[in-house]
């Protein structure tokens, strides 16, 4: 899940390289709309979903991935 999230974040946030597990989604330039885009991509690739508000509770990939443990 973490690797999938890294790929999705890189794509949606147009990052040059994969983010680390501990970087904040918002510090990397994310916002509520890009959060919704990540969720849509996540649903397509894994069939799992989340809420936009989850990004505010869990700003890093390490924290966000815990939702799916």
């Amino acid at each position: 899940m973490k690797d999938t999230l890294k790929e999705i974040w890189k794509e949606i946030l147009e990052l040059d390289e994969l983010p680390s597990e501990d970087e904040s989604f918002f510090d990397l330039g994310g916002n509520s709309f890009s959060a919704a885009q990540v969720i849509a991509e996540l649903e397509d690739r894994t069939g799992k979903t989340a809420e936009v508000s989850d990004f505010y509770e869990r700003e890093t990939i390490a924290q966000f991935a815990e939702l799916f443990d």
């Binding site: 509520s32 709309f33 959060a35 919704a36 885009q37 969720i39 849509a40 809420e51 936009v52 508000s53």
Partner: peptide, 17 residues
């Protein structure tokens, strides 16, 4: 509420995809 905002946000994503 958050549910309404999430509903709108997801619709916006549909527009971009």
């Amino acid at each position: 509420d958050m549910a309404t905002l999430s509903f709108f946000m997801k619709l916006l994503v549909d527009v971009t995809r």
